[in-house]
Computed example of a mutant assay.
Amino acid sequence: MANILHSSIKNREEIVNSLGTEKDVVHLSFGINDSYARGMGIAVFSVLENNPDLRFHVHLFGTTLSNESISRIIELAKMFPLAVTTYTFKDEAFQGLPMVGRYTHAIYYRLFIPLILADITDKVIYLDADTLCVGQYNDLITLDISQHTLCAVNDEKRARAKLCPVLKLTSGNYFNSGFLYINIEKWVARDTTNRVINELRENGDKFKFPDQEALNVVLEHETLLLPKEYNYIVDIIYKRVGHEKALPAGVILIHYTGKCKPWHSWGGSNVADLYYSYYERSPWRGISLDMPVSYKEMKRYARVLWFKGDYLSSVKWMAKYMNTKVFRKRTHD
């Protein structure tokens, strides 16, 4: 499988390396397309800022990045010691692998990362692009995971209660795959990629979150569960504007699950504001936050603006919300 995967890489390019002669490097990986390059970049910026004693080599798997994204990554490497390598797959790389529901072959990116990096490192951190690091990884990288295929963090209680019986997870555990600390040696030795793909072939059409659920089924008894601080899950719009709880002390990684992302202007919560404090100091600061498109987003944004004291703008967006909702209703009548 490893040789097949290497031959499936269309292009491998080290786009920047300001690490010098550093040997003790932490390897960090993402599976993205260019539309998520901004999120990835801010995630990496936050990791670097909060871990000044560590040196990172970031591996980006997916589709080709734009010149603009690459230039911002290079700017990031001028701010911190950093190496970044991109890997783009050939069009036929995933031929023959099952398509699951509405999901593209991008769900396979993280399954192949350990195989492709096996000649480079024995461990790798995988992060989703909608994350923000606010703590240090020193304890993580010294953790003994020699007997486990990976480390992860349990999903929220309601997710476990719903999915454990469905997936027949007798342990009662169901981890979120937005953060994984992978033991590459064990992953490869246990043929993990093939086992997960086989699970997707057999049951993928039953899964709501295909790759995450397949990983849970296959690795239920091979995963070391870490405290929730390593993948603290928040849904920005789960609470009403101004009613969210404060972020607990000791959180290392915030994971912004849900449809509303922290680069959306209508987020309007303390954890969204925290994200923006990193955003505006990163090389991606010149890109404006995404503005509302749907009437529900407009309504949320109007409430955010009101809560922040920008009453005139709030009224304008509430008017846009009303007009858009009325127009939408008329077109559906």
Rank of each mutant, 00 (worst) to 15 (best):
Ala106Cys: 08
Glu202Asp: 14
Ser46Thr: 06
Glu22Pro: 00
Thr223Ser: 08
Ser146Pro: 00
Glu68Pro: 00
Ser177Lys: 01
Ala37Glu: 07
Tyr321Gln: 13
Val16Asn: 02
Phe327Leu: 14
Ser277Thr: 13
Gly242Ser: 10
Asp235Tyr: 11
Val293Glu: 15
Arg190Met: 11
Ala43Gln: 07
Asp235Asn: 08
Asn203Tyr: 12
Tyr232Met: 05
Pro292Tyr: 11
Tyr87Thr: 06
Asn176Pro: 00
Gly39Arg: 10
His332Lys: 15
Asp34His: 03
Lys162Asn: 08
Gly268Trp: 10
Leu253Glu: 09
Pro248Asp: 04
His243Gly: 00
Tyr279Leu: 12
Met298Leu: 15
Phe175Lys: 03
Leu253Ser: 06
Lys168Val: 06
Pro210Leu: 06
Arg72Leu: 13
Phe209Arg: 12
Leu247Ser: 01
Leu60Pro: 01
Ile287Asp: 06
Leu97Trp: 14
Asp91Met: 05
Ser171Asn: 07
Val84Tyr: 00
Lys168Pro: 00
Cys133Phe: 05
Asp91Gln: 13
Pro283Gly: 02
Thr223Lys: 07
Gly258Pro: 03
Ser265Ile: 15
Gly135Lys: 03
Val293Ala: 09
Thr121Pro: 02
Val100Met: 07
Gly101Val: 03
Leu140Gly: 04
Ser277Gln: 12
Val44Gly: 01
Pro52Glu: 10
Gly101Glu: 07
Glu297Asp: 06
Pro98Val: 12
Ile32His: 04
Ser66Met: 06
Leu60Met: 10
Glu185Asp: 10
Ile42Pro: 02
Pro52Met: 11
Ile184Gln: 04
Ala129Tyr: 13
Pro52Gln: 11
Ser35Phe: 08
Asn17Arg: 04
Ala189Lys: 15
Ile107Trp: 02
Asn138Asp: 14
Thr64Ile: 03
Lys320Trp: 07
Asn194Cys: 03
Leu312Val: 13
Ala249Pro: 00
Asp34Arg: 01
Glu22Val: 14
Pro283Trp: 01
Lys162Tyr: 10
Asn11Ser: 15
Ala249Glu: 15
Ala249Ser: 14
Met318Leu: 10
Lys208Gly: 09
Leu54Ser: 11
Ala246Arg: 09
Glu213Met: 14
Val25Leu: 12
Phe30Lys: 05
